[in-house]
Amino acid sequence: MTKMKLPLFAALSMVAGSLVLAGCSNPTAATPSEDGASSSTVTVSSANFPESEIIGNLYAEALKSNGYTVETKFNIGSREAYIPALADGSIDLIPDYTGNLLLFIDPSADVSTPAAILSALPKALESKSLSMLTAAEAEDKDAVVVTRATAEKWKLTSIADLAAHNDEVVMAGPPEFKERAVGLPGLEKNYGFVPSKFEPISDGGGPATVKALLDGKVTAANIFTTSTAIPANDLVVLEDPKNNFPAQQVVPVAAAGKLDDGAQKAIDAISAKLSTSELIKLNEQVSGDAKVEPQQAAITWLTDQGLLSK
């Protein structure tokens, strides 16, 4: 019977594996830490993707150069993990995105315009004992992207123009794009855009999605506005005049009262200079061919912007 054991074990460990995976994003699974950081130490964190880690490094390096003791805990996961971590004091500061953060705290919030988000966000955060600093202009939000050739052939400037070609359009995006209110349901409601087929690709608008678009396997794709693939392949981001995709400006979020005035000033100075194109450049250095470490890319950028006090 030894033969039977291996497959059975394999099958069981698959189930166990999926349960572990499922557990990862469960907020209650996050281990609450004792009040680890003393008030003089600032623990800077980031979500589990490169852009967030880059911005986290910008914050960390700027604070260091202003004389703060900085501890870093990057890549700690998704909002489900880091918002409770901010509240319980295991981390003090993390970059986030305005629209999604507001919807996370208040799923029924009005996210129709960037201004509405910015005015509602501080209050929503307060209810969680969190606070935000000034949001940057840089915005990493969902977009419908086509190749330059498609845009010229069909004379596309906005998503509404794509609706005229519904029958010909195959759209790629992450699986959740099909179901979420801001995904296909929103595009249909706002623009009457219904692609003939939806191809789910689970790399979050990454290289496989871009490849499918460039190969012509799909006509349009859901790619983020700060993707380096957009300038690199001369892709066209279709305008979203009805704000189907909520604004997602980069915003520093901190536990309330954790950052003193000097620290806030240092972070605000970064947000003042961080535009979408600057963020794309930072992403390019880290995720592109150069493969610069996020920390090094952050130091170089801060130096170039004159934000490192020496």
Binding site: A22, S25, A172, P174, E179, R180, P200, I201, S202, D203
Partner: peptide, 20 residues
């Protein structure tokens, strides 16, 4: 296979994870 645009039983796993 469901990581890219194919089907199979992985579709439930990838779609489910994406939608929590």
């Amino acid at each position: 296979a469901a990581y890219v645009n194919l089907g199979g039983l992985g579709r439930y796993i990838f779609d489910g994870l994406a939608l929590y």
